[in-house]
């Protein structure tokens, strides 16, 4: 029975090809620093999963955002754990992605033929910071509110386009309900969509060129 199901699926999906393409790839000798990329991916998935759970109860309006998080922390079963993991996962992800970037730099892995992998990767790093920036406002507490006021003000000092940046970020002249819904939308739809797409490209490029080898004296 199981054999039949496997055979049926294999005929259509091609497990053998998948195994060869995805898993049985040859690689140069690596070390533990090479795990940071997959660790970043793991944290991205964790942030996605915990974030999706949080949206079940979170209400992105100034009147309810704070109370809905209080509710998640105190009344939802394991809500404190999900929120805590999402909160710390954000910090950890920024840290891991940054160290991953430094590793790539110090092992000179960004050179031919992996230039594009680096460029996509550094955009991924900036998007991760963007996730941190937009997510910071969502609890809508004192710290979140004022940090966003200050941060968006900084965007406003750019000569010429400053006032436009300020209005685009805030959705008006002040940090308001519109700012919150903008940041929420960016945090759960726009940035994750961009991240997911670029992560796909990043992974494709890694599979195409293979994991880089650590340089020796002759390189």
């Amino acid at each position: 029975m199981m054999k039949n199901i496997y055979a049926w699926l294999d005929e259509r999906l091609g497990f053998d090809d998948m195994y060869k393409m995805l898993l049985d790839r040859p690689e140069p000798h690596g070390n533990w620093w090479n795990t940071l990329g997959s660790a970043s991916l793991f944290l991205f998935i964790m942030q996605g999963v915990t974030g999706i759970f949080l949206t079940v109860y979170y209400a992105p309006t100034p009147d309810h955002a704070y109370d809905s998080i209080q509710y998640i922390m105190n009344d939802v079963a394991f809500g404190w754990l999900i929120r805590g993991m999402h909160h710390w996962g954000a910090s950890l992800m920024v840290f891991v992605v940054f160290i991953h970037m430094l590793r790539t730099f110090f092992s000179a892995s960004y050179k031919y033929p992996r230039e594009l992998t680096w460029m996509v990767g550094s955009v991924l790093f900036l998007l991760t910071l963007g996730m941190g920036f937009t997510g910071y406002l969502l609890p809508f507490n004192q710290r979140a509110y004022w940090a966003t006021v200050v941060a968006t003000n900084i965007g406003g000092v750019v000569p010429g386009i400053g006032p436009f940046i300020l209005r685009a970020l805030r959705g008006g002249t002040d940090v308001s309900a519109l700012t919150l819904s903008r940041f929420f939308s960016a945090h759960i739809w726009m940035l994750p969509a961009a991240l997911a797409g670029l992560i796909g490209l990043h992974l494709y490029l890694i599979m195409r060129h293979g994991e880089s080898a650590y340089p020796d004296q002759d390189d």
Binding site: D24, P26, E27, L36, S38, A39, F42, E211
Partner: peptide
């Protein structure tokens, strides 16, 4: 450098899973 070195499965995956 990739001749007779490592395979993604199981060499790297094992470390990746441990770190995750």
């Amino acid at each position: 450098s990739i001749q007779n070195a490592e395979r993604f499965w199981p060499d790297s995956i094992y470390k990746d899973l441990l770190v995750a």
